[in-house]
Amino acid sequence: MNIFRLLGDMCHLVAIIILFLKIWRSKSCAGISGKSQVLFALVFTTRYLDLFTSFISVYNTVMKVVFLVLAYATVYLIYLRFRSTYNSESDSFRVEFLLVPVAGLSFLENYAFAPLEILWTFSIYLESVAILPQLFMITKTGEAESITTHYLFFLGLYRALYLANWVWRYHTEGFFDQIAVVSGVVQTIFYCDFFYLYFTKVLRGSGKMTLP
Protein backbone atom coordinates (compact mmCIF):
# COMPACT_ATOMS: atom_id res chain seq x y z
CA MET A 1 0.00 0.00 0.00
CA ASN A 2 1.23 3.52 -0.75
CA ILE A 3 -0.15 7.01 -0.22
CA PHE A 4 -1.27 7.36 -3.84
CA ARG A 5 -3.34 4.19 -3.74
CA LEU A 6 -4.76 5.02 -0.28
CA LEU A 7 -5.72 8.53 -1.43
CA GLY A 8 -7.13 7.03 -4.61
CA ASP A 9 -9.30 4.56 -2.71
CA MET A 10 -10.49 7.37 -0.41
CA CYS A 11 -11.40 9.55 -3.42
CA HIS A 12 -13.27 6.60 -4.90
CA LEU A 13 -15.15 6.07 -1.64
CA VAL A 14 -15.92 9.80 -1.32
CA ALA A 15 -17.25 9.90 -4.90
CA ILE A 16 -19.56 6.94 -4.33
CA ILE A 17 -20.79 8.37 -1.01
CA ILE A 18 -21.35 11.86 -2.52
CA LEU A 19 -23.55 10.36 -5.23
CA PHE A 20 -25.47 8.07 -2.87
CA LEU A 21 -26.15 10.87 -0.37
CA LYS A 22 -27.13 13.30 -3.14
CA ILE A 23 -29.78 10.92 -4.44
CA TRP A 24 -30.89 9.82 -0.98
CA ARG A 25 -31.25 13.33 0.51
CA SER A 26 -32.70 15.03 -2.57
CA LYS A 27 -34.87 11.97 -3.15
CA SER A 28 -34.12 12.45 -6.81
CA CYS A 29 -31.75 11.01 -9.39
CA ALA A 30 -32.38 13.72 -11.99
CA GLY A 31 -29.33 14.20 -14.17
CA ILE A 32 -27.80 10.92 -13.03
CA SER A 33 -27.11 8.17 -15.56
CA GLY A 34 -28.57 4.95 -14.19
CA LYS A 35 -26.71 3.10 -16.95
CA SER A 36 -23.33 4.20 -15.65
CA GLN A 37 -24.28 3.12 -12.15
CA VAL A 38 -25.34 -0.30 -13.41
CA LEU A 39 -22.02 -0.60 -15.25
CA PHE A 40 -20.13 0.28 -12.04
CA ALA A 41 -22.09 -2.34 -10.10
CA LEU A 42 -21.13 -4.82 -12.84
CA VAL A 43 -17.47 -3.71 -12.58
CA PHE A 44 -17.41 -4.38 -8.84
CA THR A 45 -19.29 -7.67 -9.18
CA THR A 46 -16.94 -9.11 -11.80
CA ARG A 47 -13.81 -7.75 -10.10
CA TYR A 48 -14.52 -8.69 -6.50
CA LEU A 49 -15.45 -12.34 -6.98
CA ASP A 50 -12.13 -13.14 -5.31
CA LEU A 51 -13.75 -11.98 -2.08
CA PHE A 52 -14.64 -15.62 -1.60
CA THR A 53 -11.44 -17.19 -2.86
CA SER A 54 -8.49 -15.16 -1.58
CA PHE A 55 -8.09 -13.02 1.54
CA ILE A 56 -5.67 -10.14 0.98
CA SER A 57 -6.25 -7.85 4.01
CA VAL A 58 -9.04 -6.57 6.22
CA TYR A 59 -8.87 -3.24 4.42
CA ASN A 60 -9.17 -4.94 1.02
CA THR A 61 -12.13 -7.05 2.08
CA VAL A 62 -13.95 -4.23 3.88
CA MET A 63 -13.53 -1.79 0.97
CA LYS A 64 -14.75 -4.36 -1.55
CA VAL A 65 -17.89 -5.03 0.49
CA VAL A 66 -18.52 -1.30 0.98
CA PHE A 67 -18.12 -0.58 -2.75
CA LEU A 68 -20.42 -3.45 -3.69
CA VAL A 69 -23.11 -2.47 -1.18
CA LEU A 70 -23.06 1.23 -2.12
CA ALA A 71 -23.03 0.47 -5.86
CA TYR A 72 -26.09 -1.78 -5.65
CA ALA A 73 -27.81 0.57 -3.19
CA THR A 74 -27.34 3.44 -5.69
CA VAL A 75 -28.75 1.35 -8.54
CA TYR A 76 -31.69 0.46 -6.27
CA LEU A 77 -32.34 4.15 -5.53
CA ILE A 78 -32.29 5.04 -9.21
CA TYR A 79 -34.31 2.20 -10.70
CA LEU A 80 -36.64 1.38 -7.85
CA ARG A 81 -36.90 3.85 -4.98
CA PHE A 82 -36.82 7.12 -6.95
CA ARG A 83 -37.47 5.75 -10.42
CA SER A 84 -40.06 8.47 -11.13
CA THR A 85 -37.24 11.05 -11.06
CA TYR A 86 -34.97 9.06 -13.39
CA ASN A 87 -34.44 10.84 -16.75
CA SER A 88 -34.46 7.69 -18.87
CA GLU A 89 -34.95 9.70 -22.07
CA SER A 90 -31.71 11.62 -21.43
CA ASP A 91 -29.88 8.48 -20.38
CA SER A 92 -29.82 7.16 -23.92
CA PHE A 93 -26.25 5.90 -24.35
CA ARG A 94 -26.21 2.48 -26.07
CA VAL A 95 -24.33 0.46 -23.43
CA GLU A 96 -24.21 -2.55 -25.75
CA PHE A 97 -21.64 -0.55 -27.73
CA LEU A 98 -19.49 -0.74 -24.60
CA LEU A 99 -20.28 -4.22 -23.31
CA VAL A 100 -19.67 -6.14 -26.54
CA PRO A 101 -16.19 -4.72 -27.35
CA VAL A 102 -15.14 -4.89 -23.69
CA ALA A 103 -16.29 -8.51 -23.38
CA GLY A 104 -14.60 -9.42 -26.66
CA LEU A 105 -11.34 -7.73 -25.70
CA SER A 106 -11.28 -9.41 -22.29
CA PHE A 107 -11.29 -12.78 -24.06
CA LEU A 108 -8.54 -11.70 -26.46
CA GLU A 109 -6.22 -9.73 -24.19
CA ASN A 110 -5.83 -11.15 -20.69
CA TYR A 111 -3.16 -12.64 -18.43
CA ALA A 112 -4.73 -16.09 -18.27
CA PHE A 113 -7.65 -17.78 -19.98
CA ALA A 114 -9.33 -18.62 -16.68
CA PRO A 115 -12.83 -17.55 -15.56
CA LEU A 116 -11.75 -15.34 -12.64
CA GLU A 117 -8.99 -13.76 -14.70
CA ILE A 118 -11.23 -13.02 -17.69
CA LEU A 119 -13.90 -11.57 -15.39
CA TRP A 120 -11.26 -9.41 -13.69
CA THR A 121 -9.99 -8.24 -17.10
CA PHE A 122 -13.57 -7.52 -18.20
CA SER A 123 -14.06 -5.39 -15.06
CA ILE A 124 -10.87 -3.42 -15.76
CA TYR A 125 -11.81 -2.70 -19.39
CA LEU A 126 -15.42 -1.94 -18.46
CA GLU A 127 -14.44 0.49 -15.70
CA SER A 128 -12.49 2.58 -18.19
CA VAL A 129 -15.66 3.28 -20.22
CA ALA A 130 -18.37 2.95 -17.54
CA ILE A 131 -18.60 6.73 -17.00
CA LEU A 132 -19.35 7.44 -20.69
CA PRO A 133 -23.15 7.23 -20.35
CA GLN A 134 -22.97 9.80 -17.55
CA LEU A 135 -20.68 12.16 -19.50
CA PHE A 136 -22.89 11.67 -22.59
CA MET A 137 -25.99 12.53 -20.52
CA ILE A 138 -24.37 15.77 -19.33
CA THR A 139 -23.50 16.80 -22.90
CA LYS A 140 -27.05 15.92 -23.93
CA THR A 141 -28.76 17.93 -21.17
CA GLY A 142 -26.07 20.63 -21.48
CA GLU A 143 -25.70 20.98 -17.73
CA ALA A 144 -24.91 19.19 -14.48
CA GLU A 145 -25.68 20.05 -10.87
CA SER A 146 -22.56 21.07 -8.97
CA ILE A 147 -22.85 18.07 -6.61
CA THR A 148 -22.78 15.78 -9.66
CA THR A 149 -19.61 17.49 -10.88
CA HIS A 150 -17.96 16.96 -7.47
CA TYR A 151 -18.90 13.27 -7.74
CA LEU A 152 -17.26 13.12 -11.20
CA PHE A 153 -14.21 15.04 -10.00
CA PHE A 154 -13.44 12.55 -7.21
CA LEU A 155 -14.25 9.62 -9.49
CA GLY A 156 -11.81 10.89 -12.11
CA LEU A 157 -9.20 11.80 -9.49
CA TYR A 158 -9.25 8.29 -8.01
CA ARG A 159 -7.93 6.59 -11.17
CA ALA A 160 -5.47 9.44 -11.79
CA LEU A 161 -4.06 8.73 -8.31
CA TYR A 162 -3.92 5.04 -9.22
CA LEU A 163 -1.69 6.00 -12.17
CA ALA A 164 0.67 7.63 -9.66
CA ASN A 165 0.39 4.48 -7.54
CA TRP A 166 1.50 2.34 -10.52
CA VAL A 167 4.46 4.64 -11.23
CA TRP A 168 5.42 4.40 -7.57
CA ARG A 169 5.03 0.61 -7.46
CA TYR A 170 7.00 0.22 -10.69
CA HIS A 171 9.95 2.14 -9.23
CA THR A 172 9.81 0.67 -5.74
CA GLU A 173 8.82 -2.96 -6.35
CA GLY A 174 9.06 -3.42 -10.12
CA PHE A 175 5.29 -4.04 -10.19
CA PHE A 176 3.68 -3.41 -13.59
CA ASP A 177 0.15 -4.48 -14.45
CA GLN A 178 -0.11 -3.58 -18.12
CA ILE A 179 -3.86 -4.21 -18.51
CA ALA A 180 -4.71 -2.08 -15.46
CA VAL A 181 -2.29 0.70 -16.44
CA VAL A 182 -3.40 1.02 -20.08
CA SER A 183 -7.07 0.96 -19.05
CA GLY A 184 -6.39 3.44 -16.26
CA VAL A 185 -4.78 5.86 -18.72
CA VAL A 186 -7.73 5.57 -21.11
CA GLN A 187 -10.19 6.00 -18.23
CA THR A 188 -8.44 9.14 -16.96
CA ILE A 189 -8.22 10.62 -20.47
CA PHE A 190 -12.01 10.44 -20.75
CA TYR A 191 -12.19 12.80 -17.74
CA CYS A 192 -9.78 15.41 -19.13
CA ASP A 193 -12.51 17.41 -20.87
CA PHE A 194 -14.61 17.27 -17.73
CA PHE A 195 -11.66 18.29 -15.52
CA TYR A 196 -11.12 21.35 -17.74
CA LEU A 197 -14.77 22.39 -17.40
CA TYR A 198 -14.72 21.58 -13.68
CA PHE A 199 -11.74 23.82 -12.95
CA THR A 200 -12.82 26.64 -15.23
CA LYS A 201 -16.54 26.61 -14.41
CA VAL A 202 -17.53 24.93 -11.20
CA LEU A 203 -14.60 26.00 -9.03
CA ARG A 204 -15.15 29.59 -10.21
CA GLY A 205 -18.30 29.39 -8.11
CA SER A 206 -20.64 29.38 -11.08
CA GLY A 207 -22.66 26.71 -9.25
CA LYS A 208 -23.92 24.26 -11.82
CA MET A 209 -21.85 23.39 -14.85
CA THR A 210 -23.40 24.51 -18.14
CA LEU A 211 -21.69 23.23 -21.24
CA PRO A 212 -20.84 25.74 -24.01
Binding site: R47, D50, T53, N60, M63, Y111, A112, E117, N165, D177
Partner: peptide
Protein backbone atom coordinates in the same frame (compact mmCIF):
# COMPACT_ATOMS: atom_id res chain seq x y z
CA UNK B 1 -0.78 -18.73 -8.47
CA UNK B 2 -1.74 -16.80 -11.62
CA UNK B 3 -1.92 -13.01 -11.56
CA UNK B 4 -5.65 -13.29 -10.72
CA UNK B 5 -5.16 -14.29 -7.14
CA UNK B 6 -2.39 -11.69 -6.77
CA UNK B 7 -4.89 -8.89 -7.20
CA UNK B 8 -4.12 -6.74 -4.19
CA UNK B 9 -5.66 -3.57 -5.60
CA UNK B 10 -9.31 -2.53 -5.48
Amino acid sequence: DGPASGKDEL
